[in-house]
Each structure stands twice: as C-alpha cells, then as structure tokens.
C-alpha cells in the first residue's frame, strides 16, 4: 500500500524583491516562494536564497582575526575589500556597513563614505545592501545622502525601525531603493513596521524584513518559530507579512565566544550552521562575514536547490 503524502497548498506567495540594476553584474532576486523552504512538492521556490558578503567602510577594528586573516590586507581598503569579495571569493552581493560614521568611531564625515560607496558600486557592479552606523540620529543625517549618492543603483538600505522609519522611508522612496524593516523578534511589530512604512506611500513589495535573529546556541528555536509564524501568516494571505527575510548571520555569530575563541574552524562552522538553520526558517538573504563560511553556505544552497 502506498502512503499518500499530505501536501499543503498556500494562497499567498512571498513578494519578489530585486536588488541591483544588472548593468555590470546580474541583479539578485529574493523571495517569490509559495511554500516553506525547500518543500518543492508543495509549492514554488523560484529564487534561491542569496548570500551577501559583509564589509565595512573602514578597516574593521573589532572583527575576529579569523575573518581578517581570511581576507588578508585588503580589509584596510574598503574598495579593495569589496573587489576581493567579488573577484576572489565569488560574492554576488555585498553588504556595506557604514561603521565609521558612528559617533563611537569618531563620526567620520559622510563625504568620505560616499566616495567609498560610489567606488564600490562602480568597480564591482554587484547589488548593494547599505546599512547605517546603528546610531539613529547620525543615520537620519547620513542615510539620505547615501541614498542620493546611490540613486539608480537599486540598492537595499537599512534599517528602518518602529521608532525611526520616516527619514529612511522617504529617502528610499525618492531615490528608488528598497528598504529593510527591522523588528525585535516579534511578528506583530514586524507587521506594524511594514504597515507604517507602506502608509508613507512606499511600495510594500519593496520591503525586506529583518526579523532579528541570533546565533546557534543563543535561542535559535525562538527565532525560528517567530520566522515560521510570520511566514505562515503570509502564506495564508497576510500581505503585510509577505516580505522576504534578510538575516545578519555574520554579525550575530562573530560576537559569540564559541566563534571567536576556539580556532577558525569552529568559528566558520558556527557561522555555517547558523546560516543553514536560518535558511530552514525561511531566510532569503543571508549576510555573512567569513568568506569560507559564505562559500560553504552558497554550496549548500546550490545542493539543496537541486530538485
């Protein structure tokens, strides 16, 4: 007797967000699936998840030596670093964090960052994700300039949070970028931020959600269930949760002692396993730090996407 497998069919697919203009390098598309990850029998998953390589706009001061050693001297120059990611390590997307703009880093003038960003955009051509410094006040000051400088590049800019979304939303709207909507591991707030952003006239289909995650060993099951609940709501028709997910695995992993203090292999594994777990939770765009870990995850995605 054969057993008939029960297959779910969902009504609402996840939005497809395209990043990059596709002139020098192909643009990337994320989202678009109509099923939970990799359940090809139940629905479509037209766009494989994408790994973006995280770099800074300045030499990293507090990054693990394991990552620095893997890249070598290029980290001293953000533009060279970016080119190395693309040319030597095969990156299809880059995530630039404007760390040097933070008051703790001495609030470097924005013009210096804009020169770096323009150079990265023109020399690599890969789709760009640009994150502010993490200081709300400073970011409200610099992100409009960043957005303008990258006008036409169709970037993904972040992050917009519940208490600070207006400036970024307005500027992304003006310059044609997509936006990252941030929420603190909370489905309701995730949805509320999406509503607030789209209430400003921003196309909900250009929002990418950052649900806030964690690293392996620090409460993954909670993060997993929040992402799954959010996805389930989207699949049954909640348009205000039908956004693809971006997760910052590199940043989460490399602050743990397990990654930093037990040799590079464990650190890389930690980042890989955190990434593959979050892929199962529904991550669409994974921002990673260690190039070896990133390569492993890209291979994993290629393998698992083979039907």
């Amino acid at each position: 007797m054969t057993v008939e497998l029960i297959k779910e069919k969902y009504s609402g697919p996840i939005n497809t967000v395209e990043i990059g203009k596709g002139a020098l390098c192909p643009s990337i598309k994320i989202g678009g699936q109509s099923t939970f990850p990799f359940l090809f029998d139940e629905g479509e998953m037209p766009n494989p998840p994408v790994v973006a390589y995280e770099i800074l706009d300045c030499p990293p001061e507090d990054w693990s030596e394991h990552i620095i050693n893997a890249y070598g001297n290029v980290v001293k120059d953000p533009v060279k670093w970016a080119k190395a990611c693309v040319e030597d390590f095969g990156a299809r997307a880059l995530c630039v964090r404007l760390a040097s703009m933070h008051p703790d880093y001495g609030s470097r003038p924005i013009d210096e960052a804009l020169v770096v960003l323009r150079a990265i955009a023109s020399k690599t051509g890969v789709p760009l994700i640009v994150l502010g410094s993490g200081d709300e006040e400073r970011d409200n000051d610099i992100m409009p300039k960043v957005s303008q400088a990258l006008k036409g590049e169709n970037c993904l800019l972040g992050v917009a949070s519940q208490n600070n979304y207006k400036t970024l939303t307005a500027t992304c709207l003006a310059d044609g970028h997509s936006i990252i909507a941030d929420s603190p591991i909370d489905v309701n707030i995730a949805k509320q931020v999406n509503i607030l952003i789209s209430d400003m006239g921003f196309d909900a289909k250009r929002i990418v959600m950052h649900p806030t995650t964690t690293s392996l060993g620090y409460g993954m099951e909670y993060v997993y269930s929040i992402m799954e609940r959010s996805r389930l709501a989207a699949f049954v028709g909640d348009k205000m949760l039908a956004m693809p997910f971006i997760v910052f695995v590199g940043a989460e992993t490399w602050k743990t002692k397990e990654a930093k203090e037990f040799g590079s292999v464990q650190g890389i594994n930690w980042e890989v396993v955190t990434s593959t777990s979050l892929l199962q939770a529904g991550a669409d765009l994974i921002v990673m730090r260690h190039p070896d870990a990133a390569r492993s995850v890209r291979r994993y995605i290629d393998w698992i996407m083979t039907k």
Binding site: D186, N188, I195, D238
Partner: peptide, 15 residues
C-alpha cells in the same frame, strides 16, 4: 498574542 497584536490603531491585523 491577541493583546500584542491589538497594540496598534486600529489593529495589526487590519483585515
């Protein structure tokens, strides 16, 4: 959960 979802005007679930 219901309470958290209701902390919005009129509601997070506008439907």
């Amino acid at each position: 959960d219901e309470y958290m979802a209701a902390l919005f005007f009129p509601h997070t679930d506008i439907g």
